[in-house]
Design a protein around this nucleic acid. Structure first.
Lengths: 344, 344
DNA sequence: TTGTACGCGTTATCAT
DNA sequence: ATGATAACGCGTACAA
């Protein structure tokens, strides 16, 4: 007799009850006498029974999986350490609740919407994690239409039936501006992410507000978050006659790229130019000069998002969760404003 | 009447045949008259029938998913752009073949073996992609024991029943050494990955062989592939009395960290020290000086691996696939050996 | 070709 | 209030 995996029928036989009753007992539902319940649980334990995913999946229509669709172009995400930490955080929680994380990558050949549809088609996933929210993000309506549950990373700017988990990255930017202003910088520029992406825009807004509050003229350049565009933006900023003495970047990779550009132009960091990053990556800590950066806890963000999604799958009402504010880690790339700033 | 999704029974009724015959017809199997087959296909088409994943899953025991277990410590992988490209490559192929990619992260709290077991338990996946092969890698036997199919990235040093897809990264290292030797460097060091990881060791072996072939004394320092250890290794190398004039790093992140260390010591790159990386990351292209690096096509690697795994799932015999050799991209971080090398 | 058992848990219906 | 029975979901595979 091959060691066949015990089914619910085996448990029923073993406990001398019917299949249906076993199901009720195991799901803690009323209508089972405490005596039978005890016998059933003992039998299940005896046989080492665990529910069959396939069986449950077939009868409940659930897949016990959640999805993450990565929509940024591969080149940009490839460089972004944020995702790995996020995924680790998601997985921590999913694994603990018997879910599995399905990763899908939208490509030029298979657009984002189609990717979501693919996951929804056969109910490959019960819910999805929506990241990199955009202005008027159509994915929220799409996912709702597809009948999936979801959680958004960050608060959408459209009506959403889904819970959201957000980090006030504006606080991080404000911290960076305050730090630089405190060092005497008067011309501070911002290399921003895409305005179409909410967190890119939010950081830019925070920058503008903080700069104005400090009585400064905010200068901003928009990019796609890539190192290449970060470098290009830096080139433009530093070519201006009254170039900035400090640049606040919307992520570490652009800051590192900007550092390269500054060095190429013969500028010393931080003596001639101060720069700050965002994400506090390992690389920023080891380069020279080490990078002053805003530290966010992507892993905690992922865990919180996964928890919210799992709760939503179990019928919890959609709520908004705000996580701890990110903090500025001051390192070597920021210093006092040059006493003799470039003409201006 | 709610628009219930058509089942195979509906198709059978519609075509006036039995359920079983429909299954045969739809799977292109013998024993179906061409007349019935035509009627059945027409009926299926009529009703817009598509097979139910859950039904198939239940009856075949397959899950139509493949897994990738990421086992490196989060901090190290977080910085590694290789994974994103790899995943994109895997996903390209999986999506096209109706599979889904399940990502699992091994953590201190849930070890690697346990993670594989978790995926195998309920047959959450049909196969796995094994990366970062180690010397005498026990995962191969484990996965086989768990009854999963697999593909390995790189050729294992133990007997394996699984197909493998490899890139000759040794060729990339040889190219770097040849490039540096051609520039007159005689003291070339290697900052290697972990000896316990096959690709780390393979690159180190290639370095040693290439150095000896060029009549040089190979100097090597082992690391865990992290930027932090890359920086530390560089510090040690540059503190030696007869410090190297060139360093070949086993990945870009360590090279960037090493660049930071060199700059911190007041060494100019490449005038005083040449460095090469591995992976050809975006960041390496935009920093100053831009990084000479070995370019591998992680995405192509992923696609090839996924193809091999899907083939294995369909019963194809395990074969070994070797991909195109990586190439050295020469940029600014390498230059002629200093005419007046540090005393030695 | 057909009919039917199978895989497996859930749930509605019915009987006690 | 308890418990049994059977239908359901869906494709596969084998005996008839």
């Amino acid at each position: 007799m091959p060691a066949r995996r015990p089914t619910i029928a085996d448990v029923a036989r073993h406990a001398g009850v019917s299949k249906g009753l076993v199901s009720y007992a195991l799901n803690d539902r009323p209508g089972v006498s405490s005596d039978s319940r005890r016998r059933i649980l003992a039998a299940a334990d005896d046989l080492g029974w665990t529910p069959s995913l396939r069986g449950r999946s077939l009868s409940t229509g659930r897949s016990f999986a959640c999805g993450l669709v990565v929509g940024r172009s591969p080149d940009v995400i490839a460089a972004d350490p944020f995702f790995h930490s996020l995924i680790a955080g998601l997985e921590d929680v999913f694994a603990a609740s018997g879910q599995v994380l399905v990763l899908a990558v939208a490509t030029p050949g298979r657009e984002e919407a189609e990717t979501y549809r693919g996951l929804a088609d056969d109910r490959r996933v019960d819910g999805v994690v929506i990241t990199d929210l955009r202005a008027g993000d159509e994915r929220i309506a799409l996912v709702e239409r597809l009948g999936l549950r979801a959680v958004t990373l960050g608060r959408p700017d459209v009506v959403s039936p889904f819970p959201s988990v957000s980090v006030d990255d504006g606080a991080g930017i404000r911290g960076a501006v305050a730090h630089l202003a405190g060092l005497g910088h008067r011309r501070i520029a911002h290399v921003a992410g895409p305005a179409a992406m909410l967190h890119g825009q939010r950081r830019a807004d925070a920058f503008a507000a903080a700069a104005e509050a400090a009585g400064l003229q905010p200068v901003m350049v928009e990019t796609d978050f890539s190192a290449a565009e970060g470098a290009e933006a830096t080139r433009r900023l530093l070519a201006a006659p009254d170039r900035p003495t400090a640049i606040v970047y919307s992520n570490d990779h652009m800051a590192l790229a900007g550092l390269g550009v500054a060095q190429r132009l013969g500028l010393r960091v931080p003596e001639d130019l101060s720069i700050t990053g965002f994400d506090d990556t390992e690389l920023g800590r080891v380069i020279h000069p080490s990078l002053t950066s805003v530290a966010t806890d992507a892993r905690a963000w992922g865990s919180a998002a996964a928890r919210a999604l799992v709760a939503a799958l179990e019928g919890a009402p959609a709520e908004h969760v705000a996580l701890a504010e990110p903090t500025l880690i001051v390192r070597e790339s920021t210093g006092p404003a040059p006493s003799n700033p470039p003409r201006g």
